[in-house]
Design a binder for these strands. Structure first.
Lengths: 242, 242, 242, 242
DNA sequence: CATGAATGAGAATTCATTCAT
DNA sequence: TATGAATGAATTCTCATTCAT
């Protein structure tokens, strides 16, 4: 899946730590679930991830249960309600994203970390599970809740990448951090359309966007001024959709 | 609402012709509706536009009818089902957009037409009716169907704007028309978050995107290659959402 | 149905005013319902009353709808949820009871009013509708909510009947008003068992209970003392059953 | 808890034999259960008794299992279904009641035995187990099934107490045995309301009821006549609640 | 044998669409 | 013709009972 990315040294998504999956952790830290229970939990998450991503959040719970090969009751034993299921999906994804961000900060050159992070976050996937990538690929799941989670857990790490990139001269002076956040968010729209027909093509548009952020692209003054941080926060934490 | 846009000569949204509203055209072209019937149709469209944009496509039909001040039967006499209503809303918007595009081609300088068109399309509004702008501002309505309509009616005009801009030296050589389409689509995500908290700020990000398309921003070769036209078409005409 | 009651002059239940039924009042005072709507509302109340009384509050709403000959949606258009339906049933009954109480105070001899009131309240019925009597005959509906309504609307009138009876020398001095309330409540258990197999027999036990309250029945001092009013109130307004 | 009862000589509930608990009798009489199995059975009964009495028959089976500290499978190994569990609870209670009845016949004065029996039956409790008293105090468990059991096992003993009382001149001539049964049943309603707010107050109302049965309370003829025995039997053995 | 996870038939409620007034 | 009441299938969630571990 990872298309070769110009300017990005070889990325090896395989060794990106993907959450703690495999370790039989339940959801919190209660105690390990029984083997079959854990397997069902995983199945449900996978089924829900795919169906949500494919058909939107309004897929019926029974359809999810059917696809996961479990009964309704099982689903509801694992997740108290539909919302909890959605949250679990998003949480999974966000966790994966965070470990990618940490790796980006630790191992990538400053000028390149942000773009590498975005690419890896989207392209990473657990072998045999479509759900993670699927969630990232579906605009339908980028609801208010998703942004809340991203804001809390990912944005601070992105800020550090941004600061490093600017210090390295890779960001034009009139561009603010919130501009990057906003444009990366916009990227979702790109991926959502292009990926089904030409997987990986969105890397090209990501590059175009970053080209616009580079000092050499500077043209007339940007009008109006950027959002401040609080503005972005309030923009992305509006009440979740019904 | 129209924030002053650097590099865009004064725009006067007031005199942009907004579809054929006012002319008592029915829905298809059958024969003109009776006066009150036409008024009801208009009211329903306005109500639906606002409610869809505010609360998403899952608003109940009865709420639309109530807001429009008509009975359910009347609504269903005008539109055979909810989908038809959604389509009519989108059609309205697309019609407005088309007349903006024609004006852009006729009156704007080649290097500037595309950006002006985008701004006008989004910012245009019929005095006293929130619905048009609202629809454009709501990510919830940018479904596959919307893109289909855009593709059929607007994209050819945008192609001409793009060709003119390239001829005028405003587009870097490695950028294809489909890149513009894709990035403009991405803009939707930008507008959707930023507009509620800082209206007009999206003009800034539009400019950043166009800065990336300018020859001076050219950097390493873009990888992978662009979508071809058919690719974009099939990308945007996937089956409509449930 | 009204069994001849010793010591109760002829009672003519026919002219007991039974709420405002017949007048096309909705539930509140909004505006009169359409003819068919009102008919459906009545049908639903009747069906619900009978089914609740027969089978308890856990009868399914769909069964109620089926018995009423309406669709589920109709039921839910009239009553926002099942609880509202239950409340409406109880309210109906309580209203009828109140008008009986008023009539008792106005027309019956002091020594006799309480007993007459109890008998009428239970035996009254709207011709052609089983629901009112049924509700009174079913222990299953005497939930906390029912007692709350009774407390608010009926108990004050009963207090006046009690005071009159005591002044008339029909109540032994060591008996308090709350004793009457408690014993009348107990009567529910009597009616509930006996009425299905021997309708009206409960009149006999009501008389036995009242005989125990008469001065001539006074024996050893009653131990312990009576509940005070607040005690009774808190006893009967405990949280409604789930 | 036992409030001093006027006219009842000191009662010593402690030495009332309470069923055969302790003797490791299984459920039917098959063969004695293994030690731990018996312990589980007891635990389940205790948990179920408390929960049923506190929260009604609709408590979930899993909650009972949890409270008893056993798994669902264990519960269902002991009791084939929920109904069987309910029956076992009631059976326990009825057994206790029977031994009280036998003691009443053996040791109490004829005029007093019935009332003493009622008080003891309700107030009796196994030290360390809330369930017995709790069951008696909860109207929720006085279903048709309960009365069936009472009818079969307790009523004959009460009949003898009644006959003795009448022979002793403590019962007015126009009162039948079924009247006592019916009124004692009514007492349940009294206890159910009053006991939570004023424990023991129901003794007062029991006395009022018995005062009404005494020859000195005789007033006008009781109308209508009493239930005969078969009437009472059929009244109390209607189909069990769902 | 004990455990507690899995099951799936209902339960209440919503909503696009039809139809009587 | 306009109205809004009626419809009923679909949806989310519960819980008595079974069965794999």
């Amino acid at each position: 899946m990872p298309v070769p990315v110009a300017g990005c040294a070889d990325s090896t998504p395989g060794d990106v730590p993907v959450g703690k999956r495999g370790v039989p952790t339940g959801s919190d830290g209660d105690r390990p679930l029984r083997r079959d229970a854990e397997r069902n939990r995983t199945r449900i998450l996978a089924a829900a991830g795919e169906l949500f991503a494919d058909q939107g959040l309004e897929v019926g719970v029974d359809e999810i249960a059917r696809r996961a090969g479990v009964g309704m009751g099982t689903l509801y034993r694992r997740f108290p309600n539909k919302d909890a299921l959605v949250d679990a999906i998003l949480q999974t994804v966000v966790e994966d994203s965070r470990s990618v961000a940490e790796q980006a900060l630790a191992t990538r050159p400053a000028a390149d970390a942000l773009r590498w992070f975005v690419i890896q976050t989207v392209d990473v996937g657990v072998p045999g599970e479509r759900s993670v990538k699927h969630v990232f690929l579906s605009n339908r799941l980028w609801t208010g809740r998703m942004h809340e989670l991203m804001y809390e857990q990912i944005v601070p790490l992105m800020q550090r990448m941004f600061d490093n990139a600017r210090a390295a001269g890779a960001i034009r002076p009139d561009v603010a951090f919130t501009d990057v956040l906003v444009l990366v968010r916009a990227l979702r729209g790109v991926i959502d359309v292009t990926d089904p027909v030409a997987p990986g093509t969105w890397h090209r548009h990501l590059q175009l966007i970053f080209d616009g952020l580079h000092p050499r692209a500077t043209a007339e003054p940007l009008v109006p001024g950027p959002l401040d941080f609080e503005g972005y926060r309030s923009a992305t934490s509006r009440p979740a959709l019904p």
